[in-house]
Amino acid sequence: MLYLKSIGTPLVLLLALLTMSGCEQAEKSAQQMLNQAAQSAKQAIDQTNEAAQQALSEATGSEGDNAGKPESDDSAKEI
């Protein structure tokens, strides 16, 4: 019986270590999945914003890069 007690404690510690390392791996995997989901969501938001800006520009009749900027008057530059 003494033999089982002496091997039991290290075995329990080893199993606890393996369980903890498995949990760390699962946590890393979950974190990677969350980061990937966040990146996908950010891309979707950026694309939606870009499409909305383009639709707004088309609806107001202004050009995309010059939206909000006053048009230059070429006739004033002529001398």
Rank of each mutant, 00 (worst) to 15 (best):
L2Q: 09
L2D: 07
L2E: 06
L2S: 09
L2N: 08
Y3G: 00
Y3I: 12
Y3Q: 15
K5A: 12
S6L: 01
S6H: 09
I7F: 03
I7M: 03
G8D: 04
G8M: 07
T9S: 11
T9L: 11
P10T: 01
P10A: 02
P10C: 07
L11S: 09
L11W: 00
V12I: 10
L13V: 13
L13C: 11
L13K: 11
L13T: 14
L14Y: 04
L15C: 08
A16V: 03
L18D: 00
T19M: 09
T19E: 01
M20T: 12
M20S: 11
M20D: 10
M20P: 04
S21C: 15
S21W: 03
G22R: 04
G22V: 00
G22E: 00
C23A: 14
C23Q: 07
E24N: 11
E24Q: 14
E24H: 10
Q25K: 15
Q25V: 10
A26E: 11
A26N: 06
E27P: 01
K28F: 08
K28N: 01
S29K: 08
S29C: 05
S29I: 03
A30L: 14
A30W: 12
A30G: 00
A30R: 14
Q32P: 00
Q32R: 02
Q32A: 12
Q32W: 02
Q32M: 05
M33H: 08
L34M: 15
L34G: 05
L34W: 03
N35Y: 01
N35D: 14
Q36T: 12
A37M: 05
A37G: 00
A37C: 04
A37T: 08
A38R: 09
A38E: 11
A38W: 03
A38H: 08
Q39T: 11
Q39M: 14
A41I: 10
K42L: 13
K42F: 10
K42G: 01
Q43I: 06
Q43W: 04
Q43N: 12
A44L: 06
A44S: 13
I45H: 05
D46F: 01
D46L: 10
Q47W: 02
Q47T: 14
Q47S: 10
T48D: 13
T48I: 06
T48V: 07
T48F: 05
N49D: 12
N49C: 06
E50Y: 09
E50L: 08
A51K: 15
A52I: 15
A52P: 08
A52T: 14
Q53K: 15
Q53R: 15
Q54H: 15
Q54P: 02
Q54T: 13
A55K: 08
A55L: 02
L56E: 10
S57D: 13
E58W: 06
E58K: 15
E58V: 07
A59F: 03
A59V: 02
A59C: 10
A59K: 06
T60I: 13
T60M: 14
T60N: 05
S62M: 07
S62W: 07
S62Y: 08
G64N: 07
G64Q: 11
N66G: 06
N66Q: 13
A67M: 08
A67K: 06
K69F: 13
K69M: 02
P70E: 13
E71A: 11
D73Y: 02
D73A: 03
D74W: 01
D74F: 09
D74S: 03
S75G: 01
S75L: 12
A76K: 05
A76F: 00
K77E: 06
K77W: 07
E78L: 12
I79C: 05
